[in-house]
């Protein structure tokens, strides 16, 4: 089962490598990884998605909690939550496809953020599934390059992940 784990991490050199190292060391997989500072400059927030059964996820969260740099963590998929992935896609557009691509971008509520003679760069925000379906809709032959942020997530309502 796919899980989203959000981690508050000391913003210290080497902290990220401990988290990533833990996954390779113990044979867990990382599907996506996203990390950036928070409103508190001493903390980073790291969100990763991983796939595993309940036992594996339990071990992952326990092992993460053991890392001294990890201040707190939450498995967002245990409750109601929001998840977003940001994607920038470079698409080749001949004159005759431009309209069709523009329509598709609108349907997916994306934005064309850069235009060249034969190039569109599209920005799209959503769940991983939505981004995948956009690429499928455009067709692989037209997609030149994809950059995705990885999932960032937050739980709904009053639940707060803080130090």
């Amino acid at each position: 089962m796919r899980r989203i784990v959000s981690v508050l991490l000391e913003n210290e050199p080497g902290a990220l490598s401990r988290v990533v190292g833990l996954f390779s060391q113990r044979g867990y997989n990382i599907e996506t990884l996203n990390v950036a500072p928070t409103e508190d400059p001493t903390l980073s927030r790291l969100t990763l998605t991983t796939i595993g059964d309940d036992k594996t996820i339990e071990q992952i969260t326990k092992q993460l909690n053991k890392l001294v740099d990890v201040v707190k963590l939450v498995d967002l998929t245990e409750g109601s939550h929001l998840e977003r992935d940001l994607m920038l896609v470079k698409i080749r557009t001949g004159a005759e496809q431009r309209e069709e691509i523009k329509r598709t971008v609108d349907i997916f509520r994306g934005q064309i953020v850069d235009v060249g003679p034969e190039i569109y760069i599209v920005q799209l925000v959503g769940t991983g599934d939505k981004l995948d379906s956009f690429i499928a809709a455009i067709g692989c032959s037209e997609v030149l390059e994809v950059a995705r942020s990885g999932v960032a997530g937050i739980s709904r309502g009053e639940k707060i992940l803080s130090a």
Binding site: P13, G14, S17, R18, G21, Q25, V68
Partner: peptide, 16 residues
């Protein structure tokens, strides 16, 4: 050393 020892320490510090 921090990298080499990372999987086999409880924690490590490089003094800055």
């Amino acid at each position: 050393m921090i990298g080499v020892s990372r999987p086999i320490v409880k924690h490590s510090f490089q003094v800055r």
